[in-house]
Amino acid sequence: MLSFLQGFWVILKHTFRKRETVLYPEEKIYLPPRFRGRIILSRDPDGAERCVACHLCSSVCPVDCIALQAAEDETGRRYPEFFRINFSRCILCGFCEEACPTAAIQLTPDFEMAEYLRENLVYEKEDLLISGPGKYPGYNFYKVAGLAVGGKDKGDGENEETPVDVHGLLP
């Protein structure tokens, strides 16, 4: 009997509490930056595509919903020829973001992706690519990779010696 009354008491108390429910979509709730929503592809600080088509996101994806193909431009810079995410399969687990070595693929606090047709949930690279660096403003993979690519010569990157002179015998 006592527990019965206790239950009524709790409900009565909650009636006067501040309401948690918001009138979505008129009213939007706050989502933290680390919320795992719609996936985007970012660009490096120089404005070039960050994705180097290493296939780590696709390989780590538990539902196999990422497919891409690597290609190389004339300067040796690698980029995805196509990059496709099937959001009708995606579970927004964020493994792809964790695996990404170039901070290219990021999850954003946007979850409003509902569609009437599943076909519309297939996002190609044009749909994924944004114009900024996203959550990691400073990082540029090719500056630390040691490769000569896109006008950056050997030795021009961060933490790189000038190329070895093979003919030199000095210690």
């Binding site: 196999d64 497919a67 496709r84």
Partner: peptide
């Protein structure tokens, strides 16, 4: 066993 992209590689043709 690590084959990837199974649910996306043909998604542009049919989901």
């Amino acid at each position: 066993f690590g084959y990837s992209g199974r649910t996306a590689m043909n998604a542009h043709v049919s989901v």
